[in-house]
């Protein structure tokens, strides 16, 4: 577990950490609007409106990872090599290569796509196939293979996909106007549960061995991916959410706008925490995922 791993982390204006999800302190003097955070051993990678940064545990100093072609980072995923991260943005997904003097140069892999396919909201490494990625775009879910296969369109198209998740040995996707979908292979997708059929879903998270959380325009919904989704808590646009990896009834939901909300009874009651307007990423303390 890294030094960052014991705590909850959220992204808002800057990165904030908390041991219990109640009391929050900013990590470093960093107030950029942050959209994505990736936690890795001994570092955080921070995707912000203005670029990409690496924060090392020992110094908390922000080191620039972007170049003049990378900006408006919306999602991150780990990969091999240095700098070890794939960045998703409105301009597509990009791989970096660290060179002389520590400068990282980036190459977009999305230039050949259509405009909506290029705009990448979410990216997920396929754990079953190294080098394969699922990308949630404004045109739906696309698959990308680093091994020369390039881009592959999936059955989930024609709607923006804003979140991707790997849990319970399946892929899950959140869409703008078709609710939640799931897939065994990332290519062929089926609707997951009912009740969110034409709803906008912005975030997905596992909550214990058999519960899935969905962040929607109307607040948090909980379900199992098969039966009807059940809405809980305040009616807010939930842009991100997470549950504690061991205390499965402890949930945090970030709204945009609406701040940070915490529930310790599986969504029966909620309380606003911190002094945030919008929350764009939540990382629970490290632990096993379902």
């Amino acid at each position: 577990m890294s030094d960052w791993g014991r705590d909850w982390l959220i992204a808002s204006h800057g990165i904030w950490r908390s041991a219990d999800g109640v009391d929050w302190e900013r990590t470093g003097a960093f107030g950029y609007p942050v959209k994505a955070v990736l936690r890795q051993p001994h570092r955080l990678v921070v995707g912000a409106m203005w670029g990409l940064f690496e924060v090392l545990t020992e110094s908390a100093r922000f080191t620039q990872l972007h170049d003049e072609t990378l900006t408006e980072i919306l999602a991150l995923a780990p990969t091999s090599g240095d700098p070890g991260v794939v960045a998703a943005s409105p301009y597509g997904i990009a791989w970096g290569r660290r060179g002389d003097l520590g400068a990282t140069r980036w190459t977009s892999r999305s230039d050949a796509l259509s405009i909506n396919e290029r705009f990448s909201n979410a990216i997920l490494a396929d754990p079953t196939s190294p080098g394969r990625w699922l990308v949630g775009t404004e045109a739906g879910v696309l698959a990308y293979g680093e091994d020369g296969n390039g881009w592959e369109r999936t059955s989930l198209t024609g709607t923006p996909c804003r979140a991707l998740l790997r849990a319970y040995d399946r892929f899950w996707a959140a869409t703008d106007d078709r609710g939640v979908w799931h897939s065994a292979d990332g290519l062929s997708w089926s609707r997951a549960g009912s009740g969110l059929d034409d709803g906008a879903v912005f975030a997905l998270a596992p909550a214990g061995p058999d519960r899935l959380l969905a962040g929607t325009l109307e607040g948090v919904c909980v379900g199992d991916g098969r039966s009807t989704w059940r809405r809980l808590g305040p009616r807010i646009l939930v842009s991100v959410l997470a549950s504690h990896p061991r205390e499965h009834d402890l949930w945090l939901a970030g709204a945009c706008p609406g701040g940070l909300w915490r529930s310790e009874d599986a969504g029966d009651s909620w309380r606003q925490r911190g002094n945030f307007d919008s929350v764009m990423a939540i990382l629970p303390p490290e632990g096993s995922t379902p």
Binding site: R61, T63, Q64, D67, E68, L101, G102, A103
Partner: peptide, 16 residues
């Protein structure tokens, strides 16, 4: 400020 030597920022700025 970005944790990199000055020539990195100079070169990036020049390219853009």
């Amino acid at each position: 400020w970005n944790g990199l030597p000055p020539e990195v920022l100079r070169d990036e700025a020049s390219r853009w």
